[in-house]
Simulated scan of single mutants.
Amino acid sequence: MKLMSGTANPDLSRSIADYLDAPLTASHIERFADGEIFVRIDENVRGEDVFILQSTSYPANDHLMELLICIDALVRASARRITAVIPYFGYARQDRKTGGRTPISAKLVANLIAKAGADRVLTVDLHAGQIQGFFDIPTDNLFATKVMEADIRRHYETDNLLIVSPDVGGVVRARALAKLLDAEIAIVDKRRPKAGVAEVMNIIGEVEGRRCILFDDMCDSGGTLVNAADALLDKGAVEVSAYVTHGVLSKDAQGRVAKSRLRELVVTDSIVPPPGSTETPKVRRLSVAPLLGEAIRRIANDESVSKLFD
């Protein structure tokens, strides 16, 4: 087994390598003056089972192209099997036509990864589970739910806890966490007048006197979570925190969270904080390296990955 890292999240790659007690494959990745990406693998990978570690986060197009070029380099170096480990799968929000003459970009990206030569994909908390069906190669979608559950038990009393889905589409995700914690759920009814803007319309469920935890797959601008927290507190919630797998945190998202009424926002290390973002003590990070490392170990040894979901 070989582990190769792209440049999107080198810290997570090193943490996965440490978990597996395996070195990262020597490689050289650079960009020409006009932005072209060049990749060279500096050790023999012929006949090897190679895992290329690369989130397609900001800048999404650069990191996606880098992933495709790394896969092509491995194909031409005669790797036996190539698994694209994509902790955060960019373009996942474009998983359906939202109007006339619009693309389904998640399917396009899935096609590009398969055509480049990947034999398998491993990712974490896809925005929509059906994206697995966009790939014509085996795809494992891991869930960070148990990582979140363990952290919640360490930091919160669970007897008065309420798990809240910030929208109707996240109910299944929220229910899975609530089941692990033996908690009830509530739902925020919201609408999006335009991309990146969310308005809370109603709260479904009894939140008065409860400690609420908003649970979602990603936080981009932070508007959804901040507005939902305000609505829950206005309805009588004691406090509101948020747990999110992918902290996209674009533009001034961390500043928005810092000024909000959220107790804290907990994200994983699937994404590196974007350049220029201002760190705030209200944002705390958990590692998914053990989760990904164990899945990689099981795939390499032809063991069951589904047991990680039990």
Rank of each mutant, 00 (worst) to 15 (best):
H155C: 04
V109K: 07
Y91K: 08
I82N: 08
T102N: 02
Q132P: 00
K97Y: 04
F143N: 07
K97E: 01
F135T: 04
V147L: 15
D119M: 11
D151T: 13
D95Y: 00
M148T: 03
P87I: 04
G100E: 14
A84Y: 03
L126K: 15
Y88V: 07
V147A: 14
L108T: 10
R96Y: 13
A106Q: 09
A84Q: 04
Y156V: 09
V124H: 06
V124I: 15
A110K: 01
N111H: 00
S105A: 12
D159L: 13
G100V: 07
Y88S: 03
F135K: 12
F89D: 01
T139A: 11
G99H: 08
A84T: 04
T123M: 10
I137K: 14
Y91T: 06
P138F: 06
R101V: 13
K115C: 07
A116Q: 04
V109I: 14
L108E: 10
Q132E: 03
Q94N: 05
T158D: 03
R93N: 05
Y91G: 00
K97F: 01
R93S: 09
E157L: 06
P138W: 04
H155Q: 12
V85C: 05
R101C: 12
D140Y: 08
A128T: 12
D125G: 09
G100P: 03
D136Q: 11
H127T: 09
L142V: 12
R154A: 14
R101A: 15
G90Y: 08
R96C: 15
H127P: 09
L122Y: 13
K146S: 14
A106Y: 02
F134G: 00
T98Y: 13
Y91N: 03
T145H: 08
P103C: 02
A106M: 12
K107N: 10
A106T: 12
F135L: 11
R96T: 13
I104M: 03
G90D: 06
A144D: 05
I104Y: 01
